[in-house]
Design a protein around this nucleic acid. Structure first.
Length: 424
RNA sequence: GGAGGGGUACCGAAGCGGUCAUAACGGGGCGGUCUUGAAAACCGUUAGGUGUCAAAGCCACGUGGGUUCGAAUCCCACCCCCUCCGCCA
């Protein structure tokens, strides 16, 4: 959610920011509601003040044996007026909230406008491997080695599901272990959250109400705001861990990571470039998350990107880092870097990590604040998240990039202690 | 799923229609006296949110409604916790 004060102070600036995200807004209605709301709140407060002070005199009058009837009428009128004012306030607040909840975050100043085509490659690691033999693609390799059973996955769950088997399951689990080991070593707290979340979680994360149709609903409806849904990314759980809370300055930054499968409806047809495990309804991901003070979030984003890159380098994979243009960032994010791994068979780079700074956008929606040492004022914290990493595109990249002329696949050194094989 | 009990400050807990939210009382925290030091004892102090330059004001007794001149207190709905029963891969 955007800061209404900022919109009030400089609507043009916010408008220009949102324009980079391809959103055209007119704040005039919002600003009118805001003025009316503050006026109504002021009036209601005055009436309440009058009511409170009058009410206090009643027991005194009774004690003194004086009649109270004359003021009861006045009290009744006051109560009615207050109620009326509160209905007005609630209506205006409803309008304001609906308006604000619908707006995406304002991108950072250094984020360019426009869509994907404006993404900027900021760095590259390694070189695309050169093969002097006819390479196989990840689907072929995974089938041949019995790592992934696509057909039986479909039999169990339908299109978009697969089964990791045998060395494939070991490899998948090894990746998760490798990530966990790294994050723990870096002092991040390990979190295993519920896989079913409630409506407020989706709302605070910035995914609801807009994207409520893209999650698997288990119970309830979005209209009644009581729905429970399958977790689409651990980020949704992690942002909500401290929803509605006020933290101490000393607790920040709070660094954590979680592992969960991610469940997504992903409506729409799949492309040739998304065969196999590239896009599915359920995939494994380890997610890093930070709650920081506003002045620290910039640095935290760099840290998260560096951590994701470290994991990639440990695996020895060729990848690139892109800085996303405004429209390619999620609505809640002010700035996002994607880490994209090279898939030789397709000749393209595919996202394996998305690292973003939401600044105070999610914190406002989730009312997550902190208090500075010795200060009474509360401030919204900043939240950041980054995959670290998603496995469903890494495993294809590993088996493709590390395939050998003899048809075998060399397992990255860092994974061997869990996989138990040097090559498969 | 059923029955009962409960949700008040950092924790425990009192209050059960008015002057009770700078929220009794106890504990904790902080400061002090005493002590070589500590413990104990004693004395003092501390307590949410919003708003504002600062105030005032307003809001806050799980959440949302209702009754009433007035609600922590009465009524309704919902959420959560505890106990017992049922179900249980």
């Amino acid at each position: 959610m955007l800061d209404l004060n900022k919109i009030r102070e400089n609507p043009e600036l916010v408008r220009a920011g949102l324009k980079k995200k391809g959103v055209a807004v007119d704040f005039s209605a919002l600003l009118n509601w805001d003025v009316a709301r503050r006026e109504a709140v002021f009036q209601a407060d005055q009436l309440k003040n009058q009511k409170n002070s009058t009410s206090k005199t009643i027991p005194e009058l009774q004690k003194a044996g004086k009649p109270i009837e004359p003021i009861l009428e006045a009290m009744k009128t006051l109560t009615a007026q207050i109620k009326e004012a509160e209905v007005t306030i609630a209506t205006l607040e409803g309008h304001i909230e609906t308006f604000l909840l619908d707006l995406p975050n304002v991108p950072d100043e250094d984020v360019v406008g426009g869509g994907k085509e404006n993404n900027e490659i900021v760095s590259t690691y390694g070189q695309p491997p050169v093969f002097d033999f006819k390479i196989k693609d990840h689907v072929e390799l995974a089938k041949e080695k019995g790592l992934i059973d696509y057909d039986r996955g479909t039999k169990l769950g339908g299109n978009g599901f697969w089964v990791y088997r045998d060395k494939g399951a070991l490899l998948e689990w090894a990746l998760i272990n490798y990530f966990v080991e790294n994050h723990v070593a870096d002092g991040y707290e390990f979190i295993l959250p519920p896989h079913i979340l409630n409506y407020e979680c989706g709302s605070a994360a910035g995914q609801f109400p807009k994207y409520a149709d893209e999650v698997y609903v288990v119970a309830g409806t979005k209209e009644e705001k009581n729905l429970q849904f399958m977790i689409p990314t651990s980020e949704t759980a992690l942002i909500n861990l401290y929803r509605g809370e006020i933290m101490n300055e000393a607790e920040l930054p709070k660094k954590m990571f979680a592992y969960t499968p991610c469940y997504r409806v992903e409506a729409g047809s799949h492309r040739a470039s998304e065969r196999g495990t590239i896009r599915g309804h359920q995939f494994n991901k380890v997610e890093m998350f930070q709650y920081t003070k506003p002045e620290d979030s910039e640095r935290a984003l760099e840290e998260l990107v560096a951590k994701a890159e470290k994991l990639m380098q440990g695996l020895g994979l060729h990848y690139q880092v892109s800085k996303l243009a405004a429209e390619d960032c999620s609505p809640a994010m002010a700035k996002t870097y994607d880490i994209e791994v090279w898939l030789p068979s397709l000749g393209i780079y595919k996202e394996v990590s998305s690292a973003s700074n939401a600044r105070d956008y999610q914190a406002r929606r989730g009312k997550i604040r902190f208090k500075r040492e010795g200060q009474n004022r509360t401030e919204f914290i900043h939240t950041l998240n980054a995959s670290g990493l998603a496995t469903s595109r890494l495993l294809p990249a590993i088996i493709e990039q590390f395939q050998q002329p003899d048809g075998s696949i060399v397992i990255p050194e860092v994974l061997r202690k869990w996989v138990g094989y040097e090559r498969i």
